[in-house]
Write a protein that binds this DNA or RNA. Structure first.
Length: 694
DNA sequence: GCGATCAGCT
DNA sequence: CACAGCTGATCGC
């Protein structure tokens, strides 16, 4: 849960994701996504009064967030005061002090955060430097590299501070299986069940929050079965989600909820009350998406773990893992980092201790190789001042035209412009292109996931497993009763998925973690812990071992009650996570869509541009940049960037990552690098790529 | 009657 | 298994 107070040191007159206390005086508000813990004070009477008195204060968020927010009547009073900003479109925001009339400005860019529909990060640029507020995010390793607007002049921007989602900034979450792996695990489990008969149904035991939509849409797409939910009107303008949901209970996939759902489930009753269909009793399994549950496990597990006769845990996360956070940070390499979340059992100091070494001031003067960064055009190698004083250098690289879009409500808020933010921005100081990227091996996804799992964090909320009920469970280290073929029809065929422990290629398993986590990957992957014997010791470093003792008290005897499914199948068909383009279908967006396809002529001249550039030449520049946005990249670049899943540049998926800016044809040595990676089976090009070409 | 806060529960 | 909520009790306005 976010404990961010709402204000950033650099831009204290704006408030983000907090709307109470001192934030009531902010000159502009920003909402990163529609989760309640980021909306504190947003519907309070004090805020309502503030709006009535201050007519120039607005809330800025993504179009999807605006849509989701306004679906709730409690927030309707914001309706005329929300400005939705397109993703990846630098926009100038006026910051007006209504008492004194003083006016400042800041340029904000929304970057996709991959956390839930509409979720974004905010990149602010202005007189006090460039800062990034991540909100909550899940970005896979290397995704920051492909974010065009994090770059300038072929390099990552000079970022002063990052306000970071540190939810899983704890080595126990060192590795969380990728979205695709988790999704595929769930897909296969669901497939194994619902294909048995029309009366076999699954209940996805999801929390009441946005973030599971891509799971629903992928399941629906894969099986041609809509997902039953309690409410769907918030998606009324998001057909890519809406079409996969239903309020009709007669479907085989349910994500409905009820306060007594767990009790219902004991009696094969779905939360919506269904127990039978056409007088045939339903056979229900529950699948509970979890992250922390997996994080607590010290032994390797799969992305799917059976916790009871009909109960499963599925690994699922909408926050970045420890290693994803570190990858992100070491690429961004800011001067400062401020954690937005202090995980339980941790302290600010602990978290900062982990992150500070990834910041610039901590970097050794010795340049480090930055493999992916080298794909970008490296124009000049400035001697980077390791000290971050106000060296007011100018970036002399030519302005890079960036994609451009118009604001959604140009008429409503004439002062808000999309602007070209180039390296001319004074806050952009050149930085040495040899960055802080630490290469870590990324082989996990290539490892066999057919692994044993013997822990059962059982707290009673799962079914209590009698031994008999475990007949499906496979535990290589515990002698098994031969499976009794009772109710066979009610248990998925584990044999299909499970491979014996000795099928694992153990060579991929890591050794002991080193505290110098330079190159070698760490062992505590959530589901491929080192094998066996000594593993009561969590493979993390000892400072992290607090949970071990608790763990020990949970009883290993009860840990044989889990069954796993392989996650594998990364290349599995078309389970694209990026499929949903959650753009609300509103008038303004349709307009924007059309404009994106055409040459863009902003309706308002950017007379107020702060770049101090009275030169309105910026407008043709905009038009030109936008023209390119339909096909921003040359064919060569497209080929190079093929790991960017989307070809449809018109849809703004929440999980879509823009392509690398300024990419050029790889040089021989770069190719060599990739070839080596590929040869060693490393997951350098994210798996979706394979699909894009298949 | 509403909101804020907290315990308890997923 | 504190991912993001909900409900219900209590207290203050």
């Amino acid at each position: 849960m976010s404990s961010f107070g709402g204000q950033m040191a650099e831009y204290p007159t704006i408030s983000i994701d907090r709307f109470d206390r001192e934030n009531l005086r902010a000159r502009a508000y920003f909402l990163s996504h529609c989760h309640k813990d980021h909306m504190k004070g947003l519907r309070a009477p004090t805020m309502k009064r503030r709006l009535e008195c201050s007519l120039k204060v607005f809330l800025y968020c993504s179009p999807v967030t605006k849509e989701l927010l306004l679906t709730n009547p409690k927030y309707r009073f914001w309706e005329t005061r929300i400005v939705s900003l397109e993703i990846d479109t630098p926009t100038q925001i006026p910051l007006i002090d209504e008492a004194s009339g003083k006016k400042d400005e800041v340029v904000v860019t929304l970057l996709p955060a991959g956390h839930c529909p509409g979720s974004v990060m905010f990149l602010f640029q202005g007189d006090n430097g460039t800062v990034l507020y991540t909100g909550d995010f899940r970005l896979a390793k290397g995704e920051a590299v492909r974010m065009e607007l994090l770059h300038s002049g072929g390099r990552v921007k000079d970022i002063q501070s990052v306000y970071l989602d540190t939810t899983f900034c704890d080595p126990k979450y060192y590795q969380i299986p990728s979205r695709e792996e988790c999704l595929n695990g769930i897909l296969e489990l669901v497939r194994s069940w619902i294909t048995r008969s029309p009366f076999h149904v699954v209940w996805l035991n999801c929390k009441a929050a946005y973030g599971y939509e891509y799971l629903f849409t992928n399941l629906s797409e894969e099986f041609g079965v809509q997902v039953h939910v309690d409410k769907l009107d918030m998606f009324r303008n998001m057909p890519d989600i809406l079409h996969h949901l239903t309020t009709d209970r007669s479907t085989q996939i349910h994500a409905c909820r009820h306060p007594q759902a767990e009790e219902y489930f004991q009696w094969s009753k779905l939360p919506c009350g269904m127990t039978s269909k056409n007088r045939n009793p339903l056979h229900v399994i529950s699948i509970k998406p979890s992250t922390m549950w997996f994080g607590e496990r010290t032994r390797k597990t799969n992305v799917i773990v059976r916790t009871g006769e009909s109960s499963y845990r599925a690994c699922f996360s909408f926050h970045s893992s420890y290693s994803e956070i570190k990858d992100f940070m070491s690429y961004i390499c800011p001067v400062n980092v401020y954690p937005n979340v202090i995980p339980v059992g941790a302290t600010v100091d602990k978290v900062v201790e982990i992150l500070k070494p990834l910041c610039r001031s901590s970097q050794s003067t010795e340049p480090k190789y930055k493999p992916l960064g080298k794909l970008k055009r490296v124009k000049t190698t400035h001697l980077d001042s390791e000290e971050e004083e106000d060296v007011d250098l100018f970036d002399d690289s030519p302005p890079v035209p960036l994609r451009h879009k118009v604001p959604n409500q140009p008429a409503l808020h004439p002062e808000v412009f999309p602007v070209i933010v180039t390296s001319q921005n004074q806050s952009e100081k050149p930085r040495q292109s040899t960055g802080c990227f630490k290469e870590e091996s990324l082989q996990i996804s290539l490892m066999a996931n057919y692994v044993d799992c013997q822990e059962s964090n059982s707290e009673g909320e799962e079914e209590l497993d009698s031994l008999a009920s475990l007949q499906g469970a496979v535990d290589p280290e515990t002698p098994q009763q031969p499976p009794q073929q009772q109710s066979d029809v009610d248990v998925p065929q584990w044999e299909v998925f499970f491979k014996r422990n000795n099928d694992i290629t153990d060579d991929g398993l890591e050794n002991v973690p080193s505290s110098t986590e330079a190159g070698a990957s760490q062992s505590p992957r959530l589901f491929s812990d080192s094998d066996g014997e000594s593993t009561h010791i969590s493979s993390q470093n000892s400072s992290q071992s607090t949970h071990i003792s608790e763990q020990g008290s949970q009883g290993w005897d009860s840990q044989s009650d889990t069954v796993l499914l392989p996650s594998q199948e990364r290349n599995c068909s078309d389970t694209s996570v990026n499929k949903g383009s959650y753009r609300p279908r509103t008038k303004e967006n349709i307009l924007a869509s059309q404009q994106e396809q055409n040459i863009l002529c902003p309706t308002k001249p950017c007379s107020d541009l702060k770049s101090g550039d009275p030169d309105v030449n910026i407008v043709p520049g905009v038009a030109e940049a936008t023209t390119l946005s339909g096909g921003k990249h040359t064919p060569e670049e497209k080929g190079l960037l093929s790991y960017s899943t989307k070809t449809d540049s018109q849809s703004s998926s929440d999980f879509e990552i823009p392509s690398t800016p300024d990419a050029e044809l790889p040089k021989q040595e770069h190719l060599q690098y990739f070839y080596e990676k590929l040869a060693t089976g490393e997951n350098i090009i994210v798996g979706r790529n394979t699909k894009a070409h298949s």
